[in-house]
């Protein structure tokens, strides 16, 4: 359906914006390495089904490879910055101080409690879905600490947030058209979108009106 397509396109756009930002500007100011590492973990644990060869569609498979590949590539580009632009790297590390153990632990526990089946594949899938819902927190934390961000960085975060937000009408659509109700995805999707709500508000008030992102 249209919402699902738009959501996936928005997700793709966010990654393209991020890659272009890092490659063109050759600096990583305002981008959280921790959030990017969490995304590598999210995609690697979510798409383990690639190994079972039980593919749903060519579209899904290509997207899965794309998300795993680009998330690893982003981390590599950011690590490269240590040599090519050490000032920018140091500055990023200085601000990227969110303790991700407070996300990983609870997500692992939640995956053990809430899952569709107690198998390795399903536990990893559930872990990834919980972790994705909070993976942006180090990035948002960094943003709130520095109080401002480059316009491109805010476009990246917006596109990334929009992706999960668009999955919500997609789930409503699927509930009516296929009678399908994936409770875990829906709950974590709502949680994820809620975490972005504050950011969305500021993005709407400032960036969309051409004023640049700055926190009050």
């Amino acid at each position: 359906n249209i919402f699902r397509i738009l959501a996936d396109l928005s997700h793709l756009a966010s990654i393209v914006i991020l890659l272009e930002t890092i490659r063109k500007a050759r600096q990583i100011d305002g981008i959280s390495l921790k959030t990017q590492i969490l995304y590598v973990l999210v995609f690697c644990t979510r798409y383990l089904d690639l190994l079972t060869f039980r593919w749903t569609s060519l579209y899904n498979t290509l997207m899965k490879f794309f998300f795993i590949g680009t998330s690893v590539y982003v981390v590599k580009l950011m690590q490269d910055c240590k040599l090519t632009n050490p000032v920018s790297y140091k500055d990023m590390m200085f601000r990227d101080t969110f303790q991700i153990k407070y996300l990983l632990g609870p997500c692992a526990l939640l995956a053990l409690v809430f899952n569709y089946k107690f198998t390795v594949l399903e536990l990893c899938w559930s872990f990834s879905i919980w972790l994705e819902s909070v993976a942006i927190l180090p990035q948002l934390f960094m943003l709130s600490r520095s109080g401002k961000a480059s316009t491109l960085t805010t476009h990246y975060i917006f596109a990334l947030g929009l992706y999960r937000a668009l999955y919500i009408p997609n789930w409503i659509w699927r509930y009516y058209s296929e009678n399908r109700l994936e409770k875990l995805s829906i709950f974590t999707g709502l949680l994820q979108t809620a975490l972005y709500s504050d950011f969305f508000y500021i993005y709407y008030r400032k960036v969309m009106k051409g004023r640049g992102f700055e926190l009050p």
Binding site: R54, N60, K117, W125
Partner: peptide
């Protein structure tokens, strides 16, 4: 045969 959980979303 055991039922598989289908995840067709990304």
């Amino acid at each position: 045969k055991e039922e598989e959980v289908e995840h067709d979303e990304l």
